[in-house]
Design a protein around this nucleic acid. Structure first.
Length: 568
RNA sequence: CGGGGCGUGGCUCAGUUUGGUAGAGUACCUGGCUUGGGACCAGGGGGUCGCAGGUUCGAAUCCUGCCGCUCCGACCA
């Protein structure tokens, strides 16, 4: 490709709308343009990157017995009514009607579609296992699209669905995909971590997320340096912490005027926050809930929601606290609570002695509160959010925290959808059984953004070779020197003929402009054709990531460039 | 949806407080000059000032409503 023809409108300045680096650089490098919130056009350079990622994905899926197909984006409501998700999916689903007033949606995912497809054509255990996948746009009307391609409302996803005869087969499919995902993200040049995760709305259990480690990541993860444990903070399990045993003292009410927060009460009473109980009031579709954790801990709302098995969960407002909990905002506690409240206590709370909590009355706390003696929770469970330095559930070492961008997730669905949609087969004994399913997603467009989040510098993007739009940019220093130009043309043609994706910057620009654009777009290698190339038959080869410079002879540079690329 | 910020040539922004002919830089076009890290000179095209009402002799500027973008929270590939 010649730069004079390439549609890559680069920008000198960062558009104000872009916050995260991948969004800024994708816009500046002329790779994407916004059509609406969370909806983007992919310009030629971005499309090349996406196609390279897709190629890697296809190779790895096919390697594991995956077969590519393509299902409709537009899906009839009946499918979703059958599993009940038409209502559960809520506002996140893009819905539309046809001229006959029939309901449709733009597919946010394809479990329903593929399961009904497979159920009508698969009858026998001999046809299983099946691993089917597609790469296409998905639609989710996100509450808040943001960060450019990282959270769009339209995005490119690879989704594979596995159908097995039994759970042993599912385990094998799951392992295969886990392995394939590891290979995909490694080949894309990403630093990532597979972490244990919460299953969320898709359902099923047993799931891993593939997280690209980046400070801009929306997800929190914990990992252990001494073993292979890694988990999403939403999921990470915790054992109770046992406080040193104390003699139970009689509980006492203490005046604490205007003292509402944990840190205030600890300071006021001159005690450690570990001696306090934090009580958080929630409103759910299953009534009001009081969640208890130790003062220095945080509530993990996902865990709480899973314990309550509720669909909605939000912090209660002051009016709710007053009316439904019959308590006082800022002074709520589990002791002598009058309202009809489900009390969920964290495991650690149950092992505290002589603690402090709110008295459910204005400006008062209770001292020497002892769980079981002074209050009896409805549910006792692990509901706290894991923190840095908490012990590893596997080996006990101190955990580290990091931020991650979720680029893929693998799920075991078991028979959730096959039962709901009656996708059954006859086994070797002629017995009808539901297929055992798994689903496996990769955010292709998000992977592109994540790659940038991990590979950039002050001058622009630094693409890993495997997914770079072009591997090499050939830049003649002078736009007038005919010898330089003809050498540049020759190199450009020869590299392309030898399978190296190359652009020629044939624009009538000063060299600085060409270097800047090349760095912004992020070609792994720049080849400068200058006076030295003409006089000494040497080309200058500069590595984008390191700035390292090599001089190769015009006689033999092709192999040298290829060797260099293979090492990057 | 709740809470902040912002909508002025493609991009970055000034002008709004105190109403009076719509500006700069950059990008783009033409010519000249220049060519090893976003040069320079000259000329030029391009804006219903987010939209709709209202106030006024007169509105980018004041008032009302709406729309959009963006950041912080709940959702997720």
């Amino acid at each position: 490709m010649r730069m004079t023809q390439l549609y890559a409108p680069t920008l000198r300045e960062t558009p104000a709308e872009a916050e995260v680096i991948s969004h800024q650089l994708l816009l500046r490098a002329g790779m994407i343009r916004k059509a609406a919130g969370g909806i983007y056009s992919y310009l030629p350079l971005a499309w090349r990157v996406l196609r390279k990622i897709e190629t890697i994905v296809r190779e790895e899926m096919d390697n594991k017995g995956g077969q590519e197909l393509l299902m409709p984006i537009m899906q009839p409501a009946e499918l979703w009514l059958e599993t009940g998700r038409w209502n559960v999916y809520g506002d996140e689903m893009f819905r539309l009607k046809d001229r006959h007033n029939r309901d449709f949606c733009l597919g946010p995912t394809h479990e329903e579609m593929i399961t009904t497809l497979v159920r009508s054509d698969v009858r026998s255990y001999r046809q299983l296992p099946l691993r089917l996948y597609q790469i296409q746009n998905k639609y989710r009307d996100e509450i808040r699209p943001r960060f450019g391609l990282m959270r769009g409302r339209e995005f490119i996803m690879k989704d594979l669905y596995s159908f097995d005869r039994d759970e042993i087969g599912l385990e094998e499919s799951y392992r295969s995909m886990y392995d394939a995902y590891t290979r995909v993200f490694s080949r894309c040049g990403l630093k990532f971590r597979a972490v244990e995760a919460d299953a969320g709305a898709i359902g099923g259990s047993g799931t891993h997320e593939f997280m690209v480690i980046a400070d801009s990541g929306e997800a929190g993860i914990v990992y252990c340096n001494d073993c292979d444990y890694a988990a999403n903070v939403e999921k990470a399990e915790l054992k109770p912490i046992y406080a040193a045993e104390e003699e139970l003292l009689p509980k006492a009410v203490k005046d604490t005027p205007g003292i509402k927060t944990i840190s205030e009460i600890a300071k006021f009473l001159n005690i450690e926050t570990v001696k306090t109980i934090k009580a958080l009031a929630y409103k759910t579709d299953k009534g009001v809930v009081l969640a208890l954790v130790r003062g220095d801990h945080e509530v993990n709302e996902i865990k709480l929601q899973n314990q309550l098995n509720c669909l909605t969960l939000e912090l209660a407002d002051e009016q709710t606290v007053t009316e439904e909990f019959e308590s006082t905002p800022g002074f709520i506690g589990p002791v002598d609570l009058k309202g009809k409240v489900t009390v969920v206590a964290d495991l650690t709370v149950m092992n505290m002695f002589n603690a402090v909590c709110g008295a459910n009355k204005p400006d008062q706390h209770i001292l020497n509160v002892n769980p079981k003696r002074d209050f009896e929770p409805t549910i006792i469970a692990d509901i706290r959010l894991i923190q840095e330095n908490d012990p590893c559930p596997q080996c006990g070492s101190q955990l580290k925290t990091a931020r991650g961008i979720e680029v893929g997730q693998v799920f075991k669905l078991y028979t959730k959808y096959s039962k709901a949609l009656k996708a059954t087969f006859l086994d070797e004994n002629g017995k009808e059984k539901p297929m055992v399913m798994g689903c496996y997603g990769i955010g292709v467009s998000r992977t592109m953004a994540a790659a940038i989040e991990q590979n950039y510098d002050d001058n622009g993007i630094v693409w890993p070779v495997s997914i770079a739009p072009y591997s090499v940019a050939v830049i003649p220093v002078s736009a007038k020197d005919s010898e330089q130009l003809s050498l540049a043309e020759k190199i450009y043609a020869e590299l392309n003929n030898n399978g190296v994706d190359t652009v020629l910057d044939d624009r009538n620009e000063r060299p600085g402009v060409k270097f800047k654009d090349a760095d912004l777009i992020g070609y792994p290698i720049k080849i400068t054709v200058g006076p030295k190339t003409v006089s000494e038959k040497l080309i200058e080869v500069k590595i984008r990531r390191t700035g390292e410079v090599h001089y190769f002879s015009l006689q033999s540079y092709i192999e040298d460039v290829k060797a260099l690329l293979s090492k990057l």
